[in-house]
Every structure is written in C-alpha cells, then in structure tokens.
C-alpha cells in the first residue's frame, strides 16, 4: 500500500468510526503538517456527508431539530435492548419540523387528541391510567389570572404536584387497536406536543414529554410500567424529551414535543406530559399546561434502490 492510499485509508477509518487511538494520533500528526492531506480529508468528509444524505433518503432517517441530544442520553433500562431514551434539551426555544428529502417521502397525520383543558368541570383520576383514552394526573382546568394568558383558548390546565414530590405529570394511554392497521410500506410514529409555563416562584422546574410503547393491552400498562425495572421485556421502546427553561425565560410558554417511531409489536402507548426538577423543600409552584396534541403520523418508505 503506498503512502497516499494508506493515508486515505486512515481518513476513511476515522470517518467510519473504525479508527482506534493510535489511528487518530497518527491522523492528527499527519493532518497538522500536511496541507494537501487536509484538503483530501475535507474532500473525503464532504463525500461522506453526501453519502449520508443519500442514505437518509433511502432509509428515511428523520431529522427533527427537537430530537433528544446524544450528549445527554442515558438508558433508563440498560438491560433492555430497547430501553427508555432520555434527552435533555436545555434551551428555551423548541420546535420541530420534518424535512422531506428526495421528494419521495409522503406522510399522513391523524390528530387523535387535541386538549386545551377548556372544560371547567374536568376531574381526573390521579393514578396512572388503567384504560385508554383517559387523562390521569393532578390537573384542573383554570382561567388565567394575574397577567397570565392561556396558550390558546380561554382556559388552561394547572398541574398541582403533591407536596414533597420532585415531579408530576399528566398521562394517557393510546390503544393502537382503536386505529386502522398500518398499510404495507409505511412506518407509523406517535407525535406529542404540549405547551408549559411555570411563573417565577423560586422553583426552576423543567418540562418533559414522554412516549413509551408497550406490547401489553391498556389495562396491563400500569403494571408493566411499575415492573419495568425488573424485566427487560416490559417496555418495547420509549423516548423522553426534557426541557429546562432558562431562569430569565420563566413565565413564558414553552412548547415541548417528542416523537416515537412505533416499534413492531406495540399495542399500547403511554403518553405523559409533566414537570420535573421540583425542589421538594420549597412550596409547590403553579405549573400550567395547554394545547396538548397527539398525532399518529404514517410515513411511506421510499423505494429501496436509488434511481
């Protein structure tokens, strides 16, 4: 192997994640002193990028700005092949969009829940849900007061954490048996979005949206969730987005969203929107939730081969 080929091979190992420490050290030394090799490296990284774009078109790797950050990932259930993925998004602006690539991707979405907590008589069970299509949690419908506005509509939900709790959430089960089967060639995702607000009270809570897929029927989800630490098989897959507002942006509405590609074998999906990072030593703050949307999104896979 001549030097040039050897160097290209080294670059390629780095770009494909196959380089070891010795490779990286060698590449570093070479690149620092060889301007021509740096140009080769830059050209190789550009081609790698273009290849990735092509691969994304073929495999429908979705790009969503609001996806969880790798650097904050942690597997809650490390024994499971598909555990619960935790992401922390530490900025105050959260939005999501999907960029169709290649013009071959088609999507249909069905809104299955749209909740603005406009019903003043809403009374919710406070335990985890035991059946589908029912909100559960310590939440009441309130009218805005003290200079606060609802995110939309005239009322909003107020989460009331139990004194001493570090977190509180509103949850619901979606039963996939209630919806048409997925057509061949499509993948299905569940997307959840909600807007949160916590006026400044000395607490600095974070907000989260969690989506967890289970193989069990809705009535068995609570037990499966409770047993998740003891059995790898309880959770098929899950994602959680955490959003920690900056202190000077408390009092604003913060939209937080998450999306989960529904794995094969899923029967029920538990959706939860809530707050965390509460200081149990301090008084319970006012926490508001509004404009919750849950959507099923079916996406057609592009053809397996490039044109």
């Amino acid at each position: 192997m001549n030097k040039s080929t050897e160097h290209e091979d080294l670059i390629d190992r780095y770009l494909t994640g196959m380089a070891d420490e010795v490779d990286v050290e060698q590449l570093e030394a070479l690149l620092k002193t060889d301007e021509e090799l740096r140009q080769t490296f830059l050209a190789a990284s550009r081609v790698d990028s273009h290849l990735r774009e092509q691969a994304e078109q073929l495999t429908l790797v979705k790009k969503e700005i609001s996806r969880p950050l790798k650097s904050h990932f942690a597997w809650i259930n490390p024994g499971s092949a598909a555990g619960l993925l935790i992401g922390l998004f530490s900025a105050s602006v959260v939005w999501a969009y999907v960029v169709p690539r290649g013009g071959e991707i088609t999507r249909t979405s069905q809104e299955i829940v749209s909740e603005g907590f406009e019903d003043s008589d809403i009374e919710l069970p406070t335990h985890l849900p035991v059946k589908a299509n029912e909100w559960c949690g310590r939440l009441v419908s309130v009218t805005p007061k003290g200079g606060i506005s609802a995110f939309e509509g005239k009322r909003m939900g107020r989460l009331t954490p139990k004194a001493g709790n570090r977190s509180e959430s509103l949850s619901r089960i979606v039963d996939l048996h209630d919806y048409p089967d997925l057509e061949s060639g499509y993948v299905r995702s569940l997307r959840v979005k909600g807007s949160f607000m916590a006026p400044f009270t000395g607490q600095n809570p974070g907000f989260h949206v969690r989506i967890v897929a289970f193989g069990q029927a809705p009535e068995d989800v609570r037990q499966a969730w409770t047993d998740r630490w003891n059995s790898d098989a309880m959770i098929l897959q899950g994602v959680e987005r955490k959003h920690l507002p900056e202190k000077d942006e408390q009092g604003n509405w913060h939209e937080v969203s998450a999306s989960l590609e529904i794995p094969e074998g899923t029967r029920s999906i538990m959706v939860a929107l809530g707050v965390w990072h509460l200081n149990p030593e301090m008084s319970v703050p006012d926490l508001y939730l509004d404009a919750v949307q849950v959507q099923l999104v079916d996406t057609c896979k592009p053809p397996a081969k490039p044109n």
């Binding site: 380089a19 070891d20 420490e21 990286v24 050290e25 590449l27 570093e28 690149l31 620092k32 301007e35 740096r38 140009q39 490296f41 830059l42």
Partner: peptide, 17 residues
C-alpha cells in the same frame, strides 16, 4: 476522548474548509 482530533487541528480544518 482520545478518538477525536485536537481543537487546534479543528481550527485549521475550519479555516481551510
């Protein structure tokens, strides 16, 4: 992380890219 290039080299690459 010993599997990443140095900051000094990244500055160089960023300038030349």
């Amino acid at each position: 992380d010993r599997l990443v290039l140095s900051e000094e080299l990244l500055e160089l690459l960023a300038n030349e890219a």
